[in-house]
Nucleic acid binder design. Structure first.
Lengths: 74, 74
DNA sequence: CATTAATGTAATGAAAACTTTACTTTGTGT
DNA sequence: ACACAAAGTAAAGTTTTCATTACATTAATG
């Protein structure tokens, strides 16, 4: 809906499903609320760098494997 | 001083100096205020993932080259 | 079909990021 | 020493992340 949400995409749901983890599982392991994971997957607000690192760590991949950034053409 | 500030470190100042850029230069190219760059370099608060990507882009290195995350031993 | 797990929606509030402005200190060069 | 650029300090205000709680909907399974 807004422009900002489209410059950052993530594959959290996919990677999570591959590992057969629920949102709750991932949230607990990352030390955040389930709402936070859900919001990232769906509403896709931009997480903090620390949270991004934590999620990548739990999913056992590089941060860039989870999050892709496309700068917009101004 | 607080625990959180120590789990995330960055090499912004070093990389910036190598490229002979001022804080103002980097701020403008990244599209943020100079205060934000200064705060990241010194007070080291944790940036958003998008900002981290922008800074890495301007410095022309991978995000992990700029920011290092060390999880703490609970 | 009934039960439970998983996901989604929504609202409120706290905390942190980031902006803006203004001023001070430190460096650098002439 | 002077001037100017760069870096630092500080404070107030806005925006966004993230937590918390509660409830609704959608799988999945017996």
């Amino acid at each position: 809906m807004n422009e900002k949400s489209q410059q950052l995409t993530n594959r959290i749901a996919v990677l999570r499903a591959e590992r057969k983890m629920t949102q709750k599982d991932l949230a607990e392991k990352a030390g955040v609320s389930r709402q936070t994971i859900l919001s990232l997957e769906n509403k896709k607000y931009s997480p903090s760098l620390v949270l991004a690192f934590k999620i990548a760590k739990v999913l056992d991949v590089a941060i860039t494997q989870v999050f892709q950034y496309k700068e917009e053409s101004k």
